[in-house]
Structures are given as C-alpha cells and as structure tokens.
C-alpha cells in the first residue's frame, strides 16, 4: 500500500499536502479509493466556503457506495478540482494526484495534529484485522 511520507492523514482517510504558499491540498487516500472501487461521481465544495474541522464538505461516490469527505482542518476553500466532475475515475488512477479541494488553514498548527505516514500506516493495520 502506497502511503507517501510527504503527506499528512486523517483517521477518516483523507490526505493533506501543505503547499509552499501555505494552503493545504486535500484528497482521499489510496486505501479509501480501493475500498470504494470505481468512482462515478464527485462533488467538491464551493470556493470561498468556510469549513470547520470535521465538516462534511465533499462527496465521492463509487459504483458501490457514497462517501462523505470531511474537512481535515478549519479554513476557507480556495480552489476545487473541477476536472474530477467529468472524470471521477482519476481518483482510481492516482488517488494522491487527484486532489479534491484546497484550503487556506485558519491555524497552520492544526496540520501538525494530523497523522503522519507512520501513524496512518498503523491505523490501517489496526483496521485490517
């Protein structure tokens, strides 16, 4: 299972990448993608929306099920990946390239509270019993 060590992770299987400009890019993990199977629908949050950590802010739907995506940290949506609207299968092809949205973090320190790759690996091992 690929778990890049330059990303942060949530217990609900989102990944977060801190960009050079201080924004955070968010997607769902390879593990989440594998669980869901072929993606057929993506709904991203509106740019400008204020999100609190834990808010339901995006939806990914596969042939099998609908899944809510939660805001990993508090902040304002600065961009959404419109490309996924017409090509949701990009998540299956490369879950770490197919980002869903970007946030301007309200508090940069929030990122530090997320799981690192080792922590996420441990989480997956504990779920896979």
């Amino acid at each position: 299972m690929s778990i890049p060590n330059n990303l942060k992770y949530t217990k609900s299987h989102e990944w977060v990448h801190l960009e050079d400009d201080g924004t955070a890019t968010i997607g769902i993990t390879q593990h989440a993608q594998e669980l869901l199977g072929d993606m057929v629908f993506v709904e991203t949050p509106a740019v400008g929306r204020q999100l609190k950590q834990g808010d339901e802010c995006a939806v990914v739907e596969s042939v099998k099920a609908a899944a809510d995506v939660y805001a990993p940290i508090t902040g304002e949506v600065t961009a959404a990946n419109e490309e996924l609207t017409s090509a949701p299968e990009k998540i299956n092809q490369d879950a770490y390239a197919a980002w869903l949205f970007r946030l301007k973090p309200a508090n940069a320190a929030d990122l530090e509270k997320l799981l690192d790759s080792t922590g996420y690996q441990k989480l997956l091992e504990s779920e896979d019993h």
Partner: peptide, 8 residues
C-alpha cells in the same frame, strides 16, 4: 471519509 458498507 466514511462510507456505508452494506455487507455486514
């Protein structure tokens, strides 16, 4: 992310 899996 959470998902309702049907297979209990």
């Amino acid at each position: 992310m959470t998902s309702p899996f049907f297979f209990l």
